[in-house]
Each structure stands twice: as C-alpha cells, then as structure tokens.
Nucleic acid binder design. Structure first.
Length: 113
DNA sequence: GCGCTGACGGGAC
DNA sequence: TGTCCCGCCAGCG
C-alpha cells in the first residue's frame, strides 16, 4: 500500500465491481459504505481515476442520488454509459435511470446481509 | 502555501 | 413538490 488514499480508492473500486448486473448504486451509498458519508464527491473523484486501476471499474453503474448519469459525459463517448446500462436491462430515459428506486443496490446493506 | 473546482447530498425556503 | 444554497474532502493551478 503506497498510501491510505490509494487504499480508499481501491475500496471504492472494489464496491463498484461488486455491483451485480442490472443493478446500480449512488455515490452517497458508496461513500457511506467506506465511512465517508459526506464524501460523495470523493467517490466521484476516485471513479474519475478508476482508469488508473485494474481491472477496470464498471463506473457506468454508479449514478447520483437522482438516478442521473452524472458521469456520462466523462465516459468518453456521448451515450456510452446509457448504452451499457440499457444493455444490462436497465431502463434509461433522457440520461435518467427509470425505476432507480427498484434497481438501486446499497453496498453497506447488501454486504451486511 | 492558498484558493478553486469537482462524476454529490441533504436541508431549507 | 420543486428549486436553491451550503457543506465536505481531495487533487491541482
């Protein structure tokens, strides 16, 4: 471990990689799972560097608390993120995940069960 | 060494 | 019920 910050990033990546297909989660839930309830921004920042870690992280399954594809613009392509979500059976409309409350995956909750 | 921005969240109006 | 503003942590100029 080079530093705690790196371990923190890996913790975020690990949780994101645990997200089952057809499910999504929010930055706040991940932040709470790692103990950073108010660090939702840090989660997004970490995912911004997810490409520096391997294996790649399915960040397309991570959305904001509104179910909006906040990081869609950062994926590179225009609708790359929405396309991946729809490919997993997730309904995406106008960059917004439909039935978000039904497909949301809470890490701190699922990992505890 | 200081300040601003940023893939957000929650509370207040 | 919807929208606006403030707060938090870390990286970067």
């Amino acid at each position: 471990m080079a530093g705690k910050n790196e371990a923190l990033y890996e913790a975020i990546y690990d949780i994101v990689r645990l997200i089952p297909r057809g499910r999504v989660t929010s930055y706040g839930l991940i932040a709470a799972a790692i103990g950073m309830k108010s660090g939702a921004r840090m989660v997004g920042y970490a995912l911004n560097h997810c490409h520096t870690s391997s294996p790649p992280v399915p960040a397309h399954r991570v959305l904001n608390r509104n179910g909006l594809l906040s990081g869609k613009a950062h994926f590179g392509a225009g609708d790359e993120m929405a396309n991946l979500l729809q490919a997993e059976g997730i309904r995406v409309k106008d960059d917004m995940v439909q039935d978000f409350d039904q497909i949301v995956w809470d890490p701190s909750r699922e990992l505890e069960l």
